[in-house]
Simulated scan of single mutants.
Amino acid sequence: MGLSDIAAGIEVVDEQRDSGVATVDRTTDSLAERLEPFAADLPCTPGEAAALVDAYAEGKSVGASARVAGIAPTDGAKALHLFGESVSPVGPMGREIVGDWLAGELPRTEAVELAGVSDQEFALAAYVETHEPIEGAMEAVEGALSLDGDGSVAKRDALGDTMDGVGDLRNC
Rank of each mutant, 00 (worst) to 15 (best):
V12S: 10
V12P: 05
V13R: 15
D14W: 11
Q16P: 08
R17G: 03
R17F: 09
D18A: 03
G20S: 05
G20C: 01
V21A: 14
D25P: 09
D29F: 15
A32Y: 11
E33V: 13
E33G: 10
E33P: 07
R34P: 04
L35H: 12
E36K: 15
E36N: 08
P37A: 07
P37F: 14
P37S: 08
P37E: 12
F38H: 11
A39Y: 10
A39T: 02
D41Y: 06
L42K: 07
T45S: 15
T45P: 14
T45C: 14
E48G: 07
A51I: 00
L52G: 05
L52C: 04
V53D: 12
G59L: 01
A64H: 08
A66P: 11
A69E: 05
A72Q: 04
A72C: 02
D75H: 13
G76K: 03
A77Y: 10
A79T: 13
H81D: 04
H81S: 06
L82F: 13
F83I: 01
G84T: 02
V87Y: 12
S88C: 12
V90C: 12
M93R: 14
G94S: 12
R95W: 05
E96Q: 14
G99M: 01
A103N: 04
A103I: 01
E105Y: 12
V112M: 10
L114I: 01
D119A: 13
Q120K: 10
E121G: 14
L124T: 02
A125T: 00
A126E: 07
Y127V: 02
V128L: 13
H131Y: 03
E132A: 14
E135R: 13
M138G: 07
A140C: 09
V141A: 15
G143A: 12
S146I: 00
K155Y: 10
R156I: 05
